[in-house]
Amino acid sequence: NRMHLVCPMSLTPYVDPCKSGHGIWEEFSMSFTPAVREVVEFAKRIPGFRDLSQHDQVSLLKAGTFEVLMVRFASLFDAKERTVTFLSGKKYSVDTLRSMGAGDLLNSMFEFSEKLIALQLSEEEMSLFTAVVLVSADRSGIENVNSVEALQETLIRALRSLIMKNHPNETSIFTKLLLKLPDLRSLNNLHSEELLAFKVHP
């Protein structure tokens, strides 16, 4: 029986032992649903996103929501204090979460967050980077790869221009940001494995 749910999109890592697996799942779903809706609202505001086919909009969101949330909620991972803030606002130390079963994924999330925050991006830069994260033509199930690719290229060019304009002496920031994309993919894969384990053994 699972006693802990070490995901910051949950209100708390403690699971009510009296609840059924389905009940735990429902409660978890209710806690992360608003954040997912925000990702969808964000996607709708990306110029050109709504022009993609509905199938491709859904495919991009299905594949990329975790990565977008990881970027948006990077600040929940406090690398200095070694704590994670859950949606309830309560902080839990890494040691506590480790004792609850958190493993490599947590470490990788900390590493990613620390590096992303160190880039000190503005809100506009972060939004554009998040759009680049979401609009990736190589996600599975994309019907019209050319359309998604064209939008992706437009967004990458816009991000490059913005970074060059804001940080003319730090051109490596753009490269560093692009290198975050494969990092996010790896985190997404690790997270998917955790989800599978959770669903099989809720």
Partner: peptide, 27 residues
């Protein structure tokens, strides 16, 4: 369990959120 996003009910949430916008437009 090959699709974690579907397992989470993510697709349903995403579809509803996207459709909501269409409804708004119709209104």
């Amino acid at each position: 369990f090959a699709d974690p996003a579907s397992n989470l009910g993510l697709e349903d949430i995403i579809r509803k959120a996207l459709m909501g916008n269409l409804d708004d437009k119709q209104d």
